[in-house]
């Protein structure tokens, strides 16, 4: 807990699991969950480097803005997903290959 590498390994694992979720899932909501994992991994890195390397609060500020962006992104993406469901009856992204039917 007092060494940077334990946080970096955790962040790398979290990023990899999020990337796996994004590339393999078919459900659009599950893909959004993978994106949230990736953003959390980035946040851990920012805050860990803020404590261990730069010794100031700039990393914390970046994390605040990332959390804000994640909230905005989730709201807009779910609105798009609901439209996709109303249009197709499913939200499988590998079958959503046309902008308009």
């Amino acid at each position: 807990m007092d060494h940077l590498s334990s946080y970096l390994v955790l962040s790398a694992i979290l990023f990899s699991l999020g990337l796996y979720t994004v590339v393999t899932r078919r459900n659009a909501v599950a893909i959004l969950m993978g994106v949230e994992l990736i953003l959390n991994a980035a946040n851990i890195n920012f805050v860990a480097f803020s404590k261990f390397v730069t010794h100031n609060l700039d990393g914390h500020l970046m994390s605040v803005f990332i959390i804000m962006l994640a909230a905005a992104e989730a709201a807009v993406a779910l609105a798009i997903v609901l439209n996709l469901y109303n249009d197709r009856g499913h939200i499988n992204v590998d079958e959503a290959n046309a902008l308009k039917q």
Partner: peptide
């Protein structure tokens, strides 16, 4: 990581 504000923000927002 001594990030008290971020911990609360994480719980509230996420």
């Amino acid at each position: 990581l001594n990030a008290d504000f971020l911990a609360v923000t994480q719980i509230v927002v996420y």
